[in-house]
Simulated scan of single mutants.
Amino acid sequence: MEELRMIGEKIEKFKYILVEHIELFEEEEPLYDFETSKEVRSKLIQIHADALIHGKAQAMESMKITGMEIGKRIVDMGIPLDKNIEEAQLVRNLFWSFIEEEVSNRYYSIEILLKASSIIDAILDQFIHCVSISYVNHYKEMAKMANDSLQKIKENQEVMEELSTPIVQTILKDVLLLPLIGRIDDWRMESMQSTVLRKCADLHAEVLIMDFSGITFTKESNMLSLLDQLVGALALMGTETMFVGFTPDVVKEIVKLDFANQVKSFLSFRQALEYLFKQRGLALQPV
């Protein structure tokens, strides 16, 4: 209809002025920065103008594409969906204000303006619908990516824990060796506990030999109290703990703890192995 086309052309002509008028309806700060807000609002107004000039079908498709794009954008920007729906309502209020002005000036008949408003409402409803679908779908994708990333981090952390707790079987299959190397802090000791307990259970270990000759000990850490907990947990599982390779600094601290006299200690791994061989009536052949 010619009248609808004329209304659309008028909206197109004054779209940037209409964008500025939207600010009159705002009660809060705009969702985007000034330039982005101006770009989005002018695009929405232009699509409504196109619907009146060229027909609703083409404009509905354009609004679908725009809605899908904006749905993804607001997820990436961390903007809640309801805030974007409020933005769409501002545009709706703008058009209703425009229609009321046209009615008061009697430029067009009531029937034509009602027809124009029904087209505008349909286009805007399409926008809200597409934004909502895009928002939900993209949010799910982002959540899945985040979960996948967290899972990957967890897997990498487990690998690092395995590497930092290199438990190996000795020549005696039920005797395991844990050579500790580097700085042992509270975090590493705590993560090591679960790995040690799991490995000892999986391999049915009767004895765990812990070699401390390669570690750096800091008095500020809770390593020794955590070590006490680990020894107690292993004992409950039926696994005996032996210590080898303590440095003088560590010995000075460990003798203060209750479990010091409950755990067999040796100068080296070889001495511990010789003790176990002798205890079992076996002979350790010299290499």
Rank of each mutant, 00 (worst) to 15 (best):
H129S: 14
Y135R: 04
K154F: 10
M189C: 09
D186S: 09
S194P: 07
L208M: 06
H129W: 11
I123N: 08
I153L: 11
V136Q: 12
S149A: 14
L163K: 07
I209A: 02
L163R: 02
I181H: 01
I123K: 02
M142F: 09
M189H: 01
E190G: 00
V168H: 02
S132H: 08
D148A: 11
V196T: 00
L150H: 10
F217Y: 11
K144W: 08
I133A: 12
R198C: 04
E206L: 04
G214E: 03
T218R: 13
L124F: 04
C130D: 15
R188G: 07
D148P: 06
Q193M: 15
D202C: 06
S134M: 01
S149V: 12
D202Q: 13
L180D: 09
I167M: 03
S134V: 06
T218C: 09
K152V: 03
R188T: 02
Q126M: 15
D121Y: 13
E190K: 12
Y139Q: 15
E190P: 08
M210D: 08
L208G: 05
C130S: 15
A146P: 07
G182H: 06
G214C: 07
I215K: 04
Q151C: 05
C130W: 13
S194N: 12
E158R: 10
L176P: 05
E206T: 08
V131R: 00
E141S: 10
L208V: 07
M210C: 00
K144P: 03
K154I: 00
N147T: 15
V159R: 09
V131G: 02
K173Q: 13
L203I: 00
T170S: 10
K199Y: 09
L180V: 02
Y135W: 05
Y139I: 03
L163M: 06
F212R: 03
V131M: 06
M145Y: 14
M142A: 14
I153G: 05
V196N: 00
T216W: 02
C130K: 15
I128A: 12
L180P: 08
Q157K: 12
I153D: 08
G214R: 04
D185A: 03
D186A: 07
S134P: 06
M192Y: 08
S194Q: 13
I171G: 10
M160D: 06
A146H: 12
H204V: 12
Q157I: 11
L150P: 02
T218G: 08
I133L: 13
E161L: 10
N137I: 14
D186T: 11
L208H: 01
A205Y: 03
D185E: 06
N137C: 14
C200R: 05
E155K: 09
